[in-house]
């Protein structure tokens, strides 16, 4: 590197100093809150003994990871986790976008305010209560569906909590119902940020509503969709513990379709309470997600550099 380029580079950097300063509080917080505690990742490879302390505890290699794979459930929990997440990402995004677009069509201030607040309601109810509400619907003898809906259709009552085949649908519905309002607001903000002039021009050209959505709205919110998808892929081995544990009421008969990595780990360690093994599970989930994101981010970069995360 010769002196002129170095000087040029120095000048260029100097121009950005205010930007770097601006980032300091945020980066400092990430360092303290996220990076400092990362020494805890080492716990995944240790057999913790409190008499020795975390630091002096013995290294055990990959022993803490064994229970995740040495089980006949390994296939089921991995399959369930992946499939649910895939469905949640795709369907979750589609429905949130649809609601946001519809919401944007509502002109009345009152009506819009009303819709906007009520779709957030499910997000505010804790998952334990959601499990009670679902139970109010599905309970064998007192549930709304068994007592009112099925008789109306002339059908026999169903033991919902013993029949695994219904649960992929139930869990998906609950997940969408609970989360749609949240992600819909992101897309609403994105749509509202689009310059009105585009639409006005399109209307003058006589473009149909559908055309406008396809040619203006979608392209404009693609970066947000890409980002949310990438982040979703990063957490594809994680799942919403409450949804899979509380909502099916931890019913053993449903494990075939409700057991995911997080619930497996929880049930396996309830008795042992081993922080090494739970750290190992987290590490494994993160690592897989991490690799998948790197790959998908690389693919996104090939297509459109601006939409990539990094």
């Amino acid at each position: 590197m010769n002196t002129t380029t170095r000087r040029k580079r120095g000048a260029r950097l100097r121009r950005f100093i205010p930007l770097y300063i601006m980032m300091l509080p945020g980066l400092a917080y990430l360092f303290i809150n996220n990076y400092l505690p990362m020494f805890g990742l080492s716990i995944a490879f240790k057999d913790i003994n409190y008499a020795k302390g975390i630091w002096a505890s013995d290294w055990v290699g990959l022993k803490n990871f064994e229970y995740l794979f040495k089980t006949t459930d390994a296939y089921i929990i991995t399959r369930n986790t992946l499939l649910y997440n895939a469905v949640f990402i795709v369907l979750g995004l589609l429905i949130a976008i649809a609601i946001a677009i519809l919401l944007n069509e509502i002109r009345g201030k009152m009506a819009r305010g009303f819709y906007q607040s009520v779709i957030l309601l499910p997000y505010l109810i804790s998952i334990i209560l959601v499990s009670y509400l679902v139970y109010a619907m599905l309970s064998v003898d007192a549930g709304f569906i068994n007592k009112t809906i099925l008789p109306m259709l002339g059908l026999d009552p169903i033991s919902w909590y013993l029949e695994p085949k219904y649960w992929p649908y139930i869990l998906t519905i609950v997940h969408i119902w609970k989360g749609a309002g949240y992600s819909c607001i992101i897309f609403l903000a994105a749509i509202l940020s689009i310059d009105r002039e585009y639409y006005e021009a399109a209307e003058l050209d006589g473009a149909s509503k559908w055309m406008q959505i396809r040619k203006i709205t979608f392209p404009m919110i693609t970066p947000i969709i890409t980002m949310l998808t990438l982040l979703g892929i990063g957490r594809i081995f994680y799942s919403d513990f409450g949804l899979f544990y509380q909502v099916p009421m931890n019913s053993g008969a449903l494990y075939e379709t409700t057991n995911v990595i997080d619930t497996y780990v929880f049930r396996g360690l309830m008795q042992l309470g081993d922080i090494g093994m739970s750290a190992a599970a987290g590490f494994y989930q993160s690592l897989v997600g991490f690799i998948l994101v790197l790959v998908s981010n690389y693919i996104v970069r090939r297509f459109d550099k601006d939409n990539a995360l990094f």
């Binding site: 229970y67 089980t71 459930d73 053993g252 494990y255 057991n259 396996g268 360690l269 309830m270 093994m277």
Partner: peptide, 16 residues
């Protein structure tokens, strides 16, 4: 420990 974690899962699945 590995076996206890796996067995715990099986037991919670069938016990109740």
């Amino acid at each position: 420990k590995t076996e206890v974690a796996a067995v715990s899962n099986v037991v919670t699945q069938y016990k109740l």
